[in-house]
């Protein structure tokens, strides 16, 4: 399927993708909640088909400062996973993970980066469990990579890949936040252009 065809998804297909996003992000939120020992709220996933240039607006515009953990997903439905947090949220999350008082972390050292990467790893694993469950595919994540930069610059890594095949991206996105602390994050699953039809066929909503 060319990514142009994502603009023609039926409401049943969109619902199915939303449900995968829901369970996947739910798994991920549960994992994160256990790690930092706080309740986490999450939104109903948005399944959106966006012109490539508009994807950065989902997280507040291309110049928004974010931390991004990026993983490739290997298997029958290659995809990209991107976990984006506004810079401040990333710092608070590191405070929690490293047992510091809130606001102490101002820049990331190697240990802090490693902690964020591990969070990315765990969340991606939890999310992929759901996708594997629905599709019966074995899906394996790559090692994670971290960047702290402008949202547009980080997202470009995925968008460029999609751009070779179309002008739209299918974005399954969930926003979550910790109770009280306002640590916010966005979890993106962006199937490669060919992977979408593979996923839809595997969950039985091909047409």
């Amino acid at each position: 399927m060319l990514s142009e065809e994502v603009t023609k998804l039926s409401s049943l297909q969109l619902d199915a993708l939303r449900e995968i996003g829901n369970v996947g992000a739910g798994n991920a939120a549960t994992a994160l909640s256990q790690i930092i020992n706080k309740k986490i709220d999450m939104t109903v996933p948005q399944v959106a088909i966006l012109p490539l240039g508009e994807v950065p607006d989902v997280v507040g515009g291309p110049e928004t400062m974010v931390a991004g953990v990026f993983l490739r997903v290997f298997g029958p439905a290659p995809s990209s996973i991107l976990f984006l947090l506004p810079r401040e949220s990333a710092m608070y999350l590191v405070d929690m993970l490293m047992g510091r008082d809130r606001g102490v972390t101002q820049a990331l050292d190697a240990m802090d980066e490693s902690a964020l990467l591990e969070i990315g790893n765990i969340l991606a694993g939890a999310y992929l469990n759901a996708l594997s469950y629905f599709t019966k595919f074995t899906l394996l994540p790559s090692i994670p990579a971290l960047a702290m930069d402008m949202a547009g610059a980080i997202l470009s890594v995925i968008l460029i890949q999609l751009g070779a095949l179309g002008d739209h991206a299918l974005v399954i996105e969930t926003e979550f936040s910790t109770e009280g602390d306002g640590v916010k994050g966005h979890f993106f699953l962006i199937p490669d252009p060919g992977s979408l039809s593979t996923i839809l066929a595997a969950i039985g909503v091909k047409e």
Binding site: G61, P62, E63, M150, A151, A153, I154, S156, I160
Partner: peptide
């Protein structure tokens, strides 16, 4: 494209 005195700006280039 444009002409003086405008400015042209593009935000958040990564690999682009």
């Amino acid at each position: 494209t444009g002409s003086h005195p405008a400015s042209l700006i593009s935000y958040g280039l990564g690999s682009c």
